[in-house]
């Protein structure tokens, strides 16, 4: 490993932007396992290139650029049929995803609020899926439903949350 010049600010910035970076890389790969690998590599590069970061500038923009190049490298090495996007579309997804991530904190706040509006059952469903990491088969068995039924329901809950977050933000913006 090359010599690192890592400051406290950099470490805090890095920890602070992990959520945003995860969302960003996931949007580019669409695959959770690949995202974890890429994020790990990205963090390593960020620490190695710490000296190139200019304090006071947007850390997450700098880190996202490094992540983007890591995704491109991953695209280059991966089997073409396993990729969700070609390079042109990847560029478009990257731009839109970065633009959306500027509202990350606000959206996160609204999402908390929207989850609270869900029924107890639907909140439990999310908890089982995201916190307890139960498999969809386990969740379906818990609720006495079919596998297809539970995937459909999970989809509708996510859709309802997207709708709720959008409406909440529009309301806040006075639209």
């Amino acid at each position: 490993m090359s010599q690192m010049i890592v400051t406290e600010e950099l470490i805090l910035n890095l920890i602070d932007c992990q959520g945003k970076l995860y969302s960003y890389v996931l949007s580019l790969t669409g695959n959770r396992n690949d995202t974890h690998d890429i994020l790990q590599e990205t963090n390593k590069i960020i620490l190695e290139k710490a000296a190139e970061y200019t304090p006071g500038t947007s850390f997450s923009a700098w880190a996202s650029k490094i992540a983007y190049y890591k995704v491109l490298a991953y695209q280059r090495d991966a089997a073409r049929e396993s990729l969700l996007f070609n390079v042109e579309i990847l560029q478009e997804i990257s731009e839109k995803s970065l633009s959306k991530s500027k509202q990350n904190d606000r959206r996160l706040g609204s999402l908390f609020h929207c989850i609270e509006q869900l029924s107890d059952d639907n909140q439990k469903l999310l908890k089982q899926r995201y916190e307890e990491e139960m498999s969809l088969e386990e969740i379906a068995s818990f609720w006495g439903r079919t596998y297809n039924g539970i995937t459909s329901l999970l989809y509708r809950v996510r859709l309802a949350l997207i709708d709720c977050v959008d409406k909440t933000l529009q309301l806040e913006d006075g639209a």
């Binding site: 959520g19 969302s23 949007s27 999310l126 995201y130 977050v165």
Partner: peptide, 9 residues
């Protein structure tokens, strides 16, 4: 994807 990853967070 954004809502999915935020739900994970």
């Amino acid at each position: 994807i954004a809502v999915h990853s935020q739900l994970e967070q």
